[in-house]
């Protein structure tokens, strides 16, 4: 299990921000060649990001590069240039099943040519169109490289012709659909960023809402958001204590030869034990145990 609670976007043409990204504590850093880069600077950012990955230490953060859409002139150039320096993964905007298959194919050829291990470079489809959302299951299924899905609510709501709200009711369906499809393949479901940096309470509520639906992490657009995301996604003290008691009760039951047992008057069976085990594993990785 790898913790991927936060994925921080860093503009791909800003050397100052790129070289400091590793000390910010995000689980993943997304070096962005798409929206954060002007059309006239795409070549420049691509070279800068390639050299940054080759040279800089990003400490414990994994490096993901958001390339340009494959429907533009820049997308394939980005893959060719960036794959050579082995980022952990590529984030594919406005993903379709065909895009993921095409990326998988190009990466396979590059890996063979460069002598890299097969399937070394992973993929994160970015779901931000109605078409992509309705196909999310097949998009994940399109390649073994897919390690998670990122939901992009700004573009998605624009595509749907609806307004974004603070409460996010309009993306309830999208979050459920992405979370469920991701769980089906045991990959991460990363929630859309919260864009109002001055609304702390709204931000916390937004993360809680996403977590309660089954999203496993959240994208961040500012380093200030990282600690809050980690706090909300960390198991609570009560959850950890309960999980420990479940595991202890399970051991006792095993000794006594019982299959199903009860704790605090409630039946405990396999799914509850599995959940307790997941919570303890997350707690360990978060440094809470």
């Amino acid at each position: 299990m790898k913790l991927r609670r936060s994925m921080l976007f860093i503009p791909g043409n800003n050397p100052g921000m790129i070289q400091n990204a590793g000390v910010l504590g995000a689980d993943s850093i997304i070096l962005d060649l798409e929206d954060a880069v002007a059309v006239t600077e795409k070549d420049s950012a691509r070279i800068l990001v390639r050299n940054a990955i080759k040279t800089l230490d990003f400490y414990n953060s994994e490096i993901v590069v958001r390339i340009n859409p494959l429907s533009t002139d820049f997308g394939f150039e980005d893959i060719k240039e960036i794959a050579k320096v082995k980022p952990h993964a590529l984030l594919i905007p406005k993903s379709t099943t065909e895009d993921i298959k095409a990326c998988d194919d190009i990466l396979k050829r590059i890996e063979e040519y460069e002598g890299f291990e097969n399937n070394h470079i992973k993929l994160f489809p970015l779901i931000e169109t109605a078409y992509g959302l309705e196909n999310v299951y097949n998009i994940i299924k399109a390649s073994d490289r897919v390690e998670g899905v990122l939901l992009g609510a700004e573009d998605l709501t624009a595509d749907l012709g609806i307004k974004r709200s603070r409460e996010g009711e309009e993306i309830f369906y999208a979050r459920c659909k992405v979370a469920s499809a991701c769980r089906a393949f045991r990959v991460d479901a990363i929630d859309t960023p919260f864009t109002d940096l001055n609304d702390y309470e709204g931000f916390v509520e937004d993360i809680k809402r996403a977590k309660s639906i089954g999203m496993t992490g959240k994208a961040a657009i500012n380093p200030r958001q990282i600690d809050t995301i980690h706090d909300v996604f960390a198991p609570s003290k009560e959850e950890i204590e309960y999980a420990k008691r479940v595991m202890k009760a399970q051991e006792d039951a095993k000794r006594e030869g019982k299959g199903v047992f009860s704790l605090d008057g409630k039946m405990v069976d396999a799914p509850i034990i599995q959940r307790a085990d997941n919570i303890l594993e997350k707690a360990r990785l978060s440094g809470l145990l």
């Binding site: 050397p15 070549d43 420049s44 070279i47 800068l48 390639r50 050299n51 940054a52 800089l56």
Partner: peptide, 17 residues
Amino acid sequence: GALDYTIKSRVETAIKR
């Protein structure tokens, strides 16, 4: 105050252009 990787990148970009 650019680091080496930035200097190399900017020179490469300008040359290619």
